[in-house]
Nucleic acid binder design. Sequence first.
DNA 1: CGCTAGTTTGATCCGGGTCAATGCTGGTGG
DNA 2: CCACCAGCATTGACCCGGATCAAACTAGCG
Lengths: 248, 248
Amino acid sequence: MLTPLEISAPFSAISRMGGLRLLANCSQCPIRPASICSVLDRRELSEFEGMGREASFAPRSMIFMEGASADAVYNVTTGLVRLFRLLPGGQRQIVGFALPGDFLGLPPGDRYGFSADTAVKTTACRFPRRNFIAFAESHGPFLRRLHDAAARALDLAHDQMTQLGPRRAEAKVAAFIFAMRRRWLRLNGASTLVPLPMGRQDIGDYLGLSIATVSRTLTRLDRQRVILIVPKGVRILDSSRLEQLAAH
Amino acid sequence: MLTPLEISAPFSAISRMGGLRLLANCSQCPIRPASICSVLDRRELSEFEGMGREASFAPRSMIFMEGASADAVYNVTTGLVRLFRLLPGGQRQIVGFALPGDFLGLPPGDRYGFSADTAVKTTACRFPRRNFIAFAESHGPFLRRLHDAAARALDLAHDQMTQLGPRRAEAKVAAFIFAMRRRWLRLNGASTLVPLPMGRQDIGDYLGLSIATVSRTLTRLDRQRVILIVPKGVRILDSSRLEQLAAH
DNA sequence: CGCTAGTTTGATCCGGGTCAATGCTGGTGG
DNA sequence: CCACCAGCATTGACCCGGATCAAACTAGCG
């Protein structure tokens, strides 16, 4: 297990965040169809654009911390964000990964319910919460879209719980690869190549396994020719066998 | 592990659902303050009342099934609802318990994302989805309240994930009792008596433990005078020790 | 009062955690 | 351009917590 400082870059790293740039050309944005902003028409989009800034983050830098005042919301455009909670014992439970197109940062109260940091270089559209909420309240369909995003996040959370339970390591890892493929599919289209930009420790903290077990299990799947381990990901060789293992 | 038929009553049990009654006196409803309808004023409330019916369910009867067309939403008023998914292997993962005041049944798509059945005799306000959504869309603050309920559910899901990870059985069970006390507190006020209307199997399927381990762990906490096992619940004897165990 | 479903308790076993050593790789500076 | 280094990944050896199987016990309920 890791101490907070080892998990993500210390505060100084926040200063590594690149400058904020104005949003431009939302209408050309490749991830817009998969995003909350997909429901906005041209006029609404330009109003929306004016509220936000593009924020870019170095690898392993903090976006926000659990318990901090939730005064900005984010829409990830590139990279990968780790969402996690720290237990009193110092262990980290990753409660989700945010991919391009995912929306973050509107908890029930006014404080973030989990921490978020980047696994790799990441960019996101950042909006002040006040303005964002005001905008949502005056655009009904957008508010509905937000509810939809929350319901989708809940659904993903349920998927993950189903994985976290007392299942075999092989089933967890196989199901994880499957789930990641399904999520990338919406963005990159169908492919047997599944990017895994996060490290082994991250996968372990997501599935409730030790780094050693994650590594061993992947190696075993590779040796059985079910997958092929490639840099920063895996290639699925035998999809039906993988699905079968995921089912347990 | 259980087969689907053992987990909940077979279809015939649905017929044990009591008759639907008109909603009356929402304004007097004891759980309204904790519920989505809390934001409605007198006039809105009476419109809302007209849309719904009170449904009552015998113990262990199905409310809806994962994958079925989501054409009704529910607001639990009394009893306890188990929310669960069945894995291909036949295991059941309970993804949540719905207590009085909790809202159910608005998934991202048009099909339920999990199954719901009752652990004990339960009543709920039932609304046709179409009408409910139409109502929400024409009452902005209510729609916001719905988003809030979803965000709260997501937060609970994150709590549960944190428990499901590779933690000690003692920590899981202690944290579970703590969490249930906190949830009942909103409804019943502070008390050291924590109702646990669900069975040991349910607790196990919620925490990712076997029924044997749940039972053993509770017995151990009882013998250590941290809790006292009472019918359908526990009494907390040493709250600070319990909290300490929950932390790990 | 006996039946049934749920719970408690015991005995055994194994998957995966832990600890530790080794291997690999990409980035840095001489 | 290459040697070095730091961080991550892999692999091995050992051990323990909790699963599993099975039996005994208990509490509602007809």
